[in-house]
Amino acid sequence: MAVFIPRPNFPQLDSLVRSYFLGHHQAALTEMSQMLSTVELIIECRDHRVPLSSRNPLFEKALAGRERLMVYTKKDLAQGTLNKIQKNAITKWHSPNKVMFSDVNNFLDVKKILSYARKTAKQVDNLTGSRMLIVGMPNVGKSSLLNALRRVGVQRKKAAITGGQPGVTRKIATSVKVSEDPLIYLIDSPGVFVPYVPNSETMLKLALVGCVKDTIIPPVTVADYLLYRMNLHDPTIYKKYHEPTNNILDFLAKVGKETGRLMKGGEPDLEATALWIVGRWRNGLLGRFMLDPVDKDAYQRWLEEEESAGKSNTRLKKEAKAERLEAQRARNVAMA
């Protein structure tokens, strides 16, 4: 039997939409900047699986001047993939800011974050209570973290609405109490996407972890990227559905038939199957692994690549607008 060889790289897709910067993203960013003087701590969330790709450089400028706690969320979806050296590397990326790795269902993880917030609040000693702001890219787990802090801090039910797709929180929320002593109010905010993603693979990573809506990039394309990453990690993780393969159409066709995702006439529904497969991975049911490299030089390489691929803000906005209009025209044609 022939030895399976996974694809060594994924093709650069120049036609792929690389913008998801919406109107309410800019509005939220502006409002965050205006309220900086009233908050004592910013809790910035990034997805543990994409520690570099879920970085938003807009926050560096808009939120400068306030202490930040960096929280890498959803660590349970990539559990055990970071060794001590790699965790230390990520910690150094953000020095002097504090870094924590979190699973919102892990009481100790949530308690550590809450303890840090309480320590900060005690240092400020605000008689009316401390206000803290939680920020991050879309769907990185901000609202889930807020609810977990509230559950642990004041034993109350969730206050923020959560969902599997980005855009659930669309404006700055009212303050939510997460601690009685000291008194702390946490403010949820909409996820803010970058104006333009410099390369197609980063956009695919963000789509795969759910930072953009599933309608923005063709689901079959996202599933193909997932198949590529699963093969690099361990092709046996999908053995119950298919033998190791690099052919996404064959893979989806077989999975669609076996799981009953069929169209009229009995043909497999490839798009529905792709969404289902991607959803399984997002829930940790098809391997738990990271998509970004982590080593002591990874962050610097990322910044250099980001800078070399950078374009003027005017050009970025024009290209982003053109891509949104083109995507809208395509959807209109498809619905006609």
Rank of each mutant, 00 (worst) to 15 (best):
V17E: 02
Y20A: 14
A159H: 03
E267M: 06
G23F: 05
Y238F: 15
S308V: 00
N56S: 09
R7L: 14
V124E: 08
I43R: 03
M290S: 13
D188I: 07
L127N: 04
A64F: 01
Y116F: 15
A159W: 04
L252T: 05
L82H: 08
P218M: 04
E40A: 15
V110S: 11
I90A: 03
M263P: 00
Y241G: 10
P218R: 11
V152D: 11
G163L: 12
T174W: 08
G287Y: 12
E67G: 06
L232F: 04
L204I: 04
I237Q: 13
S15W: 11
E326Q: 13
T91V: 06
V194I: 15
A78N: 07
N313K: 07
L29G: 02
T120Q: 14
L286T: 07
E60N: 11
P195E: 08
K157F: 01
K318M: 12
K317P: 00
K239I: 13
E180Y: 10
I85R: 13
S189K: 02
D269H: 13
L270K: 07
G141C: 06
S175T: 06
M70P: 00
A78C: 15
P219W: 05
T169I: 12
L275N: 12
Q155D: 14
A64Y: 00
L252R: 08
N83E: 08
T73M: 15
Q328Y: 08
Q34T: 09
C211N: 15
L291Y: 11
K318Q: 13
R170E: 13
Y238E: 11
I217W: 03
Q300L: 11
A117H: 03
I216T: 09
M263I: 10
P268A: 06
I172R: 10
T73C: 06
M100N: 03
K257P: 00
R7N: 11
W302Q: 01
K321F: 10
K112V: 06
W93V: 05
